[in-house]
Computed example of a mutant assay.
Amino acid sequence: MGGTFNTDGTFSFYVNSSLIKSGDKVEIQGLHRTANGDTEILAKEKVEIAGFAGTIAPNAYTPGSSAITGSYTGDVNFARLVINGVPTDRWGGTFTNGTFSFFVTPGFIKSGDKVEIQAMHRTSTGDTKILDTKVVKINLQGTVSADPYTLGQATITGTFTGDVNFGRLYINGEHALWGGTYNEDGTFSFYVGRDLIKAGDVVKLEVIHRVSASDLTVLDSQEIEIK
């Protein structure tokens, strides 16, 4: 019982933040209390319970970093990661003033993973409700380390890391060839023929993540040593 009832016809009634839960049926009774403490119910009304609501907007994540960050709205105060469609046991996050940080063990998320973050409201009793789910964009990464090239060889060879799956060769600043074979063991070969590269040429290999002819991301490049 209680409440503050103002002369302008408005009132407020304090409730503990965890007392009323989503799905509860709540009614408030308006009483008159006499000086000796007797009460009489004058009116009663159902209280509409608004459900928890909120959204999340994660920033792109770079594999190897230790946190997913971003922003949120509403009642979000907790999160969980879903990787390749499977909910993980990675729960938590710090949610403050509209921004959040979610710790990720470096190496847990790998290039090629489909990562989602579920935004939740968690009550003081530990109950959770999913309010929003968003895909976390994974930044592409990759490097190349080409072996020295000997004039007359048919291929440029070397190693690569990350999301490299395509290459582009420049000779003296002009685009010459596309392609390359990029193996699961991190080695590559790029066919150039035996007479394309000549003494004195400046040769650069650009490595790329290629989704389609119009969707290319340059990841790294290296000038090739010519012997």
Rank of each mutant, 00 (worst) to 15 (best):
W91L: 14
L196F: 11
R90G: 00
I226M: 13
L216E: 01
G51C: 02
K21N: 13
R122P: 06
F52R: 12
T105M: 12
V47H: 04
F160L: 04
A176V: 04
V136E: 02
P58K: 06
A79K: 04
L169W: 05
T99I: 14
D24N: 15
H32F: 15
D147I: 01
D215P: 03
S12F: 14
I117C: 09
T34H: 13
R168F: 10
G158K: 01
G112W: 14
T10R: 14
F160V: 06
S221A: 15
F5E: 03
D38A: 15
D132P: 07
G92S: 06
A213V: 05
E116T: 09
F103Y: 10
K44T: 06
S145N: 14
I56L: 07
T39K: 11
G54M: 03
D132A: 12
R33W: 02
V47I: 09
L31M: 15
T133W: 11
N59I: 05
G162N: 05
K137M: 14
G162Y: 10
G126V: 07
D185T: 00
L219C: 12
H175K: 15
G142R: 09
R80T: 05
G112F: 14
D8E: 08
R122V: 05
I49N: 08
T4S: 13
T96N: 14
D113G: 08
V15W: 10
V192S: 08
A146N: 08
Q153D: 13
T143Y: 05
F166C: 03
D8V: 10
G92M: 07
H209Y: 11
L196K: 10
Y61K: 04
N77Q: 06
T96C: 04
P87L: 09
A57H: 11
Q222G: 02
Y191K: 07
A146S: 12
D38R: 07
G85W: 11
R210T: 00
V207K: 00
T181Q: 04
E48C: 02
